[in-house]
Simulated assay, not measured.
Amino acid sequence: MMIDFRQVRANDWPEIINLANGVFQESTPMEVSFPLLFNASNRCSYVAVSNHEIIGFIGVLPEELHWQGDCYLGSRIGAVCVSQSYQGQGVGRSLFRLMKKEAQQLDFVLVSGQGKLYLSEGCELFGEFKQFIIPGQGRQMAIKAFSGEVSELLAIHRLRSQQVSYFGQSPAHLQQLIAAQSLATLFGGTQQIFLSFSGEQLVAYVVTGSHYEDGEITEVFEMAGEAQELLALLQQLALTLPNLRCRIQSESELSRLLEAQTAFETVNNAGTILYVNEKVKGVPIPHTWDLGFL
């Protein structure tokens, strides 16, 4: 039976959502956890169709990577799924190859997996990070939990846009991603956002989620701020959050500060990357457990 591979259409989404929820069987529906991806306005994704039925899907969203004033355009891939009766027939690979063909005008493609399919299709492991369990240490700080106020949202957006390299997200998209708690949901935990202030100015923030891995772990999903401010916030949080674990760019100032205090292990970036523009290989890409990765 012929299988047609094409770009997604607006009226495909109810069927795509049913397929994805049936394949992944997460406790939270996929369209709730990933509102930007499972969205009728998304025209970047692709489907496989057989006998007028959607039997495969590859979720794609546009992405921006900023570094030293340059902006690289790319895409992110997540939620690749194939109907059970069509698995093992090369449907996922065909969808990936269609995406790859369409991505030639881009600079990079981030992929939310490290499986054999992606590696055999030219994707690479990328980015080296040092993983720390943060030692607890207190100092007088003004820390509060994120309340959802617009002023806090804009301050978070402004601070993350001041990093050496960062993925571009509009405040509106950032608001949706924070509310979705997608990474915390995948880990089966609860997302928390902590803000550190100097007077009225936000100087650091940390996004965390807890899960169990031979005991409770609190994972840092995203953070931003100057190294000293981030270190102080992380150490303060480590006094109450169990096994606060953080992945930090190997050559960063924050990494050097923590190396002087505690042990670490070296880990790769999450997922894989397809380099379309060779210049992107010189960019220190943030750890891809940021708010928008999946």
Rank of each mutant, 00 (worst) to 15 (best):
G138K: 15
E102D: 15
Q104D: 10
Q140K: 14
L106W: 03
Q163E: 15
P171G: 03
G127A: 04
E149S: 13
F129V: 05
G148P: 07
S94A: 14
Q89A: 11
I178W: 07
V109L: 09
I156S: 09
E124S: 10
G136L: 09
G88R: 00
L95Q: 11
Q192R: 14
E124T: 04
A179V: 06
F132D: 04
M141G: 11
G92A: 15
S147C: 03
K130S: 12
R97S: 06
F132L: 07
S147T: 13
L117N: 04
F108N: 02
R160V: 08
K101G: 10
S83I: 06
S147A: 10
G115C: 05
R139G: 10
R93V: 12
Q114C: 01
S165T: 10
S170T: 15
S147Y: 02
G168M: 06
G127K: 06
G189Q: 03
A179I: 01
Q191V: 04
S161R: 13
M99T: 01
Q192T: 12
Q175L: 05
S161A: 15
C81M: 11
E128A: 12
G136A: 15
Q131V: 08
F167L: 12
F108V: 02
S161H: 13
Q104R: 09
G127C: 05
H173L: 05
K100N: 12
A179M: 05
G148R: 00
T190D: 13
Q192M: 08
S120C: 02
A79S: 14
M141E: 14
G90T: 08
S83A: 15
T185G: 03
L183Y: 01
I143P: 09
K101R: 12
A103S: 15
A145M: 09
L117Q: 04
C81G: 04
A142W: 02
V164Y: 02
S85A: 14
A103C: 07
G127N: 08
A172H: 07
V91P: 00
Q175C: 11
V109T: 12
R139K: 15
F129E: 01
G127I: 04
G92F: 06
H157K: 06
Q140A: 10
V91C: 12
F132H: 07
G90M: 09
L106P: 08
V164Q: 09
S182E: 02
I178E: 00
L110R: 01
C123Q: 05
F96N: 09
S165R: 06
K101I: 04
H157I: 01
L183I: 13
F146K: 01
Q114I: 01
Q84N: 07
A142C: 08
K101Q: 14
S112N: 10
I143K: 10
M99F: 07
G189L: 02
L159V: 04
C123R: 09
G188I: 03
F132C: 10
C123Y: 13
Q163W: 00
G138H: 13
G78L: 02
L117T: 03
L186S: 06
